[in-house]
Each structure stands twice: as structure tokens, then as C-alpha cells.
């Protein structure tokens, strides 16, 4: 008996230790980036162009490029993702075609990001002749984000009480009217949360944009969606592996990592807050 309780104490403490280790990983990454990156952050770093072969200056065009390409991703992936989720949650019954659609979405979620990059090159850059551009990259990232947005939106729609749909239909609403006036408004925070998280992933991705539009260095911001662009994740990759004076630009690399990480975390925290509020709102409703 005593041996048993000793075993239990040891076992449970091992599990605790594992959790702490996982948290430690996160802590170390954050500490490393924030402690060494914060020194270079100032308005010059955020709002200047890189200078002197990217050994001086800021990362302004990379920030703008990431925002621009994420915007294209948003415009493509969010309507597409929401439409698909509405179809699956509200219209699709369980038949072969719809099962095929669901299976495709689940499998798309597991396709490596570099494969999306290959697809983008072959289809958008070469096939459609969109060239190496914001549009090609935005669409590629859009495809990558799509399964995520679909899944989270469908989840949000499923959480809307069935009675909202029935109630509207009983009053003579068509199916679409019931969805538009009654289901979507109730699911909106869940949809927004999922979309933000999906976009935060897109913003941090590198592999899909590598060959579809991102550029090493540009003296101008992209003027249209058919221009190529600079992006934060790629810039970090360049500064830490491809630069001619890697040690010299290390502080800039830390700064870039810090800004990128902050952008992603801010988006995640916003999403978390929306979800948290929504949960409380739902509780109040019951």
C-alpha cells in the first residue's frame, strides 16, 4: 500500500513536471525573443526602410507587405470559408458528395505548407499567369487557411440553438432568411474568432510565399496586387540564414522576430478575449 502511494506521488509529479516543461519551452522562446529584441524596437525600426544592404534601418516594408498579403488572404479565404461552413452546417445532409467534401477539408488541413507553395507556383504563378505577386501569395495562403476557417465557423454555427432556426421558419422565413437574420448574428463572434486565428497563422507562414511572391529586398511598397512584396517571416529567414553578415544583423533579426511574434500574439489574444466574452454571454443566455 505504501509503495502504491509512493508510486502515485512520483507519477503525478512527473506529469506536473511535463506540463511545466511545455510551459518552459514557451517561456524560453518568449524570453529569448523579447529580451534580445526589445532593444532595437523604436519608431525608426518600425517605420524605416532597410538600409546599407539591410545592416541598418528598419523593417517597414516587411510589415506593410505582411499586412497587405494577409488582407488579400482575408478577402479570399473568409467569404469562401464562411460560405462552405454554412453549406456544411445548414444545407448538407449526409450523402456521398457531402462526405467527400468533409473528407477533403479534413485532409487539406494536414497538407504541409510547402505543398501549398508548390501548388501556388504551378497554378497561380505559372498556370494562371499571376506571376510572383501579392495576389499569388495571398491566394496560396488563403487556401492554406481555408480548412481552419471552415472548421471553426462550422463549430460556431453548430452552437446556435436549433430553436432559432425553427422559430424563424415557423414565421414564414425562407431557409436563407433564417440563416441570415437569426443564425449568423448569433455565431458572429465564433466566426470572427476563428477567422482571426486563421489569419494569424497565414501572417506567420513562410513556406507558401517563398516562391509565389515574396522578395528579398524592394525599394518600394507594392503598389498593386500584381507586385511582389517583402514580408516579416521571410525577412527573418533572410536575416538569420541568407545574409552576408549574419552576426552583424542579428539584433535586427531579433527585432523582426519580436514584431512578428507580437503581431501573432496580439491577434491570438484578441481572439481569446472575443471567445471568452462570447462564452460568458452564452452562459447568461441559458
Amino acid at each position: 500500500m505504501r509503495q502504491n502511494s509512493l508510486q502515485q506521488r512520483l507519477g503525478l509529479n512527473t506529469l506536473r513536471f511535463f506540463v511545466l516543461l511545455v510551459l518552459l519551452f514557451l517561456g524560453i522562446i518568449l524570453w529569448e525573443v523579447f529580451s534580445k529584441g526589445s532593444g532595437v524596437i523604436n519608431s525608426g525600426f518600425l517605420f524605416d526602410y532597410p538600409r546599407k544592404g539591410m545592416t541598418l534601418g528598419g523593417i517597414f516594408p516587411t510589415i506593410m507587405g505582411t499586412i497587405f498579403v494577409t488582407l488579400v488572404t482575408t478577402i479570399f479565404a473568409i467569404p469562401m470559408g464562411i460560405a462552405t461552413a454554412i453549406y456544411l452546417s445548414e444545407y448538407a445532409n449526409d450523402n456521398t458528395v457531402n462526405r467527400l467534401i468533409r473528407a477533403s477539408i479534413r485532409n487539406l488541413a494536414g497538407v504541409p505548407s510547402i505543398i501549398y507553395g508548390l501548388f501556388g507556383v504551378a497554378v497561380f504563378v505559372q498556370g494562371m499567369g499571376l506571376g510572383s505577386s501579392v495576389l499569388s501569395s495571398g491566394l496560396t495562403l488563403g487556401l492554406l487557411t481555408l480548412p481552419y476557417i471552415i472548421t471553426t465557423t462550422e463549430e460556431a454555427l453548430k452552437n446556435v440553438p436549433h430553436s432559432y432556426r425553427e422559430g424563424a421558419l415557423a414565421l414564414g422565413a425562407t431557409k436563407w432568411e433564417a440563416i441570415w437574420t437569426n443564425v449568423l448574428p448569433s455565431a458572429v463572434s465564433g466566426i470572427v474568432t476563428g477567422s482571426i486565428l486563421g489569419l494569424s497563422r497565414a501572417a506567420g507562414e513562410t513556406a507558401p510565399i517563398l516562391f509565389t511572391g515574396v522578395a528579398f529586398y524592394l525599394r518600394y511598397l507594392p503598389a498593386s496586387v500584381s507586385d511582389s512584396f517583402m514580408a516579416m517571416p521571410y525577412h527573418l529567414y533572410i536575416l538569420s540564414t541568407q545574409h552576408h553578415a549574419i552576426e552583424e544583423v542579428r539584433p535586427l533579426a531579433y527585432g523582426t522576430a519580436l514584431v512578428l511574434l507580437s503581431l501573432v500574439f496580439v491577434l491570438n489574444i484578441i481572439a481569446f478575449i472575443i471567445r471568452y466574452r462570447y462564452r460568458n454571454f452564452n452562459k447568461a443566455r441559458i
Binding site: 524560453i28 506567420g204 538569420s240 533579426a253 512578428l260 511574434l261 491570438n268
Partner: peptide
């Protein structure tokens, strides 16, 4: 949520 390029960077430095 940490971008893979940041993880790679941590690996380097």
C-alpha cells in the same frame, strides 16, 4: 501560434 520561422530562428541562435 508561434510562426515556424521564429522557432527556426530560436534553433539557430
Amino acid at each position: 501560434a508561434i510562426p515556424s520561422v521564429v522557432v527556426g530562428f530560436i534553433g539557430i541562435v
